[in-house]
Computed example of a mutant assay.
Amino acid sequence: MRTAVVTIAAHRDTHLRLHLRSLARSTVPPYEHVVVAIGDPAVAEVVASEDSTARLVWIEHDRGPLPLALARNAGATTALAGGAELLVFLDVDCIAGTAMLERYADAAGQRRHHHALLCGPVTYLPPPGPAGYDLDGVHELRRPHPARPAPPAGTVLIGSDYDLFWSLSFAVTATTWDRIGGFCTDYTGYGGEDTDLAQTAAAARVGLRWVGGADAFHQYHPVSDPPVEHLADILTNAELFHRRWHRWPMRGWLRAFEKRGLITYDPRHRRWVESA
């Protein structure tokens, strides 16, 4: 199965270097790697300095929320035009486990899992030491995120809670991608576009699977909880999701923002708004 990895990148040079190096160590190398640079010329410099054969796609972007959904779709379109049969979306700040691509391909090759969203376990790594992460030892740090299923390697678990889907590491066959229709590009900035894709998949009767052994390792970078720096994007995207699906996504973050007094619910207009 011709497997293409799709990565979107902007201003994450250090993460991208290790991302590229990890994919080069895969037990089954990708048929193609498409890296989508979102308004960041340094992405091409990093790819060249790592002697990577990745194909670059350029997305114009100057300021404002990053067009994440648009960029992922552009990467998928390029990969499919090159003959990809399986798309693996992996965020730039993720290190690919050596067997990740092999496990995704094995699952996709099974008839009962072929037409499904395939999700692998993700470990959030602690901060690296002065020498950075050691790719030889990263698997020893494996601690899959406890909120998502992590079946044993070589097994596939059928899922039913589509709200657990996340876009930092997943795979989908070309035919299933066409059936879903890609990410909704009305979403910009942080939050919501992956929940929308999962909801779209569920509405199209596309299954959800958790693929044991398809491990990715999320490189540490400082974040806030809840992500207050993305408050405006989250409110905009949450309202868009509510219009499309008649329920609120990212409810944990919305409750946390409300508890902090950052947002309030406007019952008259049925929307969340930033507090004055």
Results as ranks from 00 to 15, higher is better:
G181P: 03
A198M: 09
L197K: 05
Y190I: 06
G181Q: 13
F183L: 08
T175N: 14
T173P: 09
P222S: 12
A204C: 05
T173C: 07
D178P: 01
R179K: 13
V211Y: 00
H218S: 11
A216E: 11
L197G: 02
G191I: 01
G182M: 06
R205C: 04
Q219G: 04
H221N: 11
A216S: 15
G192M: 09
T185R: 03
Q199H: 08
T188I: 14
L208I: 00
D196Y: 00
R209P: 00
Q199F: 13
E193R: 13
T200P: 02
A202W: 12
R209E: 10
Q199K: 09
D215R: 09
R179Q: 12
Y190H: 14
G182S: 07
D196T: 04
W210Q: 01
G182L: 09
A198E: 00
A198Y: 04
D196R: 03
V211F: 04
H218F: 10
G192Y: 08
A204I: 00
W210G: 01
F217T: 11
F217N: 08
F183V: 00
L197F: 15
Y187T: 14
G213L: 07
G181M: 07
T195E: 15
Y220V: 12
A203M: 03
I180E: 00
G207E: 08
R179L: 14
I180H: 02
F217C: 08
D215T: 04
A214V: 10
G182K: 06
G181T: 05
Y220W: 15
E193T: 11
I180C: 06
L197V: 00
G189I: 08
R179P: 01
R205P: 00
D215C: 10
T175H: 14
L208F: 02
A198N: 03
G207P: 02
T185P: 05
T173A: 10
H221T: 13
T175C: 10
C184G: 07
W210C: 04
G189Y: 08
Q199N: 06
E193L: 14
T188Q: 14
G192D: 06
Y190C: 07
G212H: 07
Y190A: 06
T185L: 00
G207I: 02
G212Y: 07
E193H: 15
A204D: 03
T173Q: 09
R179F: 02
G213W: 03
Q219Y: 04
V206I: 15
G192R: 01
V223D: 10
G192P: 05
W177C: 06
G191A: 12
D194F: 11
A203F: 01
A204G: 01
Q199S: 10
V223C: 11
T200H: 10
V223Y: 12
D215V: 05
A216M: 14
G212W: 08
G189H: 13
A216W: 05
G207S: 07
A203E: 13
L208A: 00
D215K: 04
Q219C: 12
A203W: 01
T173I: 04
D186C: 12
A174S: 14
Q199A: 15
F183C: 06
P222N: 10
T185I: 13
G189K: 01
Y220N: 13
G192E: 02
P222G: 04
T195L: 15
D178Y: 08
W177T: 03
R205D: 06
R179D: 05
